[in-house]
């Protein structure tokens, strides 16, 4: 691919994004009730485009069996068949339908990443809010433990733990959730710390409120906005980590369809100038970009920063 062709593609993509983003925003603003429409109108085109794509991913993931022409694992043809009418995107290194596997992978990869993030979030934010509210030795203990865990780079730590427990989907989910929860803990604690020093929390403490009510009514509602935005960021991070592990052959194991391992398995095609292996990689990239764009918009709104 020449440099100019690349450039032309880039321009086409940018125009496409703008067009889709604009259309979606105009459409949703028109059909939404007033307060929601007002918020949607503040969405930049990138965020609007991001919402369309995320929606499409969710639909594909939910209805994968209905959409996919073939099954996830069935060998339906020869190896590395080119794109044609039966196999729209050809077949993979074992002769399975590429398109079907791409569709099923939306379910597997995104689902696993989502579960992992949710797990990391529950663990990290509960511990973080607790540490900030209670303070004292619980805070010290949790914070020091997290400091130590964070002193080892995430990917390396994940590899180390996976060596110990062996590579399986469940193990990977647990290992990554544990490592990622340390980052969530840091953020949840920092956010809660800023809230704990507020006079209204002091007033609640002086009123004699219990720990549960302090966290659930006074602190959590005020910490929710940054935590939700962080959920998006963490999801991207977890999603990329899982994809990287799968690409390295240490994550989601065959025969489960998964974008990361699909790139790895079919990378040979690249040397023949076939872009098929880039499709699963692109699927990963597209979703992460879209989530990031939406999160960026939300963060920008939350910060209230009118630059």
């Amino acid at each position: 691919m020449g440099f100019l062709t690349g450039l032309a593609w880039l321009v086409a993509i940018v125009i496409g994004v703008i067009a889709i983003g604009w259309t979606f925003r105009a459409f949703t603003v028109a059909i939404s009730p007033k307060p929601l429409a007002k918020e949607l109108r503040t969405a930049p085109l990138t965020a609007s485009f991001g919402m369309v794509i995320i929606l499409i991913y969710i639909i594909v993931a939910i209805f994968a069996p209905a959409i996919a022409p073939f099954s996830e694992t069935e060998i339906v043809g020869r190896e590395y068949e080119p794109w044609d009418d039966t196999f729209l995107l050809g077949t993979d290194n074992l002769g399975r339908d590429m398109l079907s596997r791409l569709i099923y992978a939306a379910r597997n990869t995104v689902g696993i990443a989502f579960i992992t993030t949710a797990l990391a979030f529950i663990l990290g934010s509960v511990a973080g809010l607790l540490a900030a509210t209670v303070g004292g030795w619980i805070d010290q203990l949790l914070s020091r433990a997290v400091d130590v865990l964070m002193a080892i780079p995430a990917l390396i730590f994940a590899l180390l733990l996976l060596t110990i427990v062996g590579t399986s989907i469940i193990n990977m989910i647990l290992v990554i959730a544990l490592i990622d929860s340390t980052r969530v803990f840091r953020l949840a604690r920092a956010v809660a710390m800023n809230i704990v020093v507020m006079d209204y929390v002091e007033a609640a403490k002086l009123r004699g409120e219990g720990l549960w009510r302090l966290i659930s009514r006074e602190i959590l509602p005020n910490a929710l906005a940054p935590l939700v935005a962080e959920f998006g960021l963490r999801f991207c991070f977890v999603f990329l980590t899982i994809s990287a592990l799968s690409f390295l052959g240490l994550g989601i194991q065959p025969p489960t369809a998964d974008w990361g391992s699909m790139v790895r398995d079919n990378a040979t095609l690249m040397t023949f100038g076939d872009i098929t292996p880039l499709l699963p990689a692109g699927a990963i990239a597209l979703l992460t970009v879209c989530v990031n764009w939406v999160v960026d918009w939300q963060l920008h709104r939350a910060s209230g920063l009118k630059e």
Partner: peptide
């Protein structure tokens, strides 16, 4: 409190 803004839970 002095600062009513921070003395009332905004939520």
């Amino acid at each position: 409190y002095q600062m009513a803004d921070t003395a009332l839970n905004p939520k």
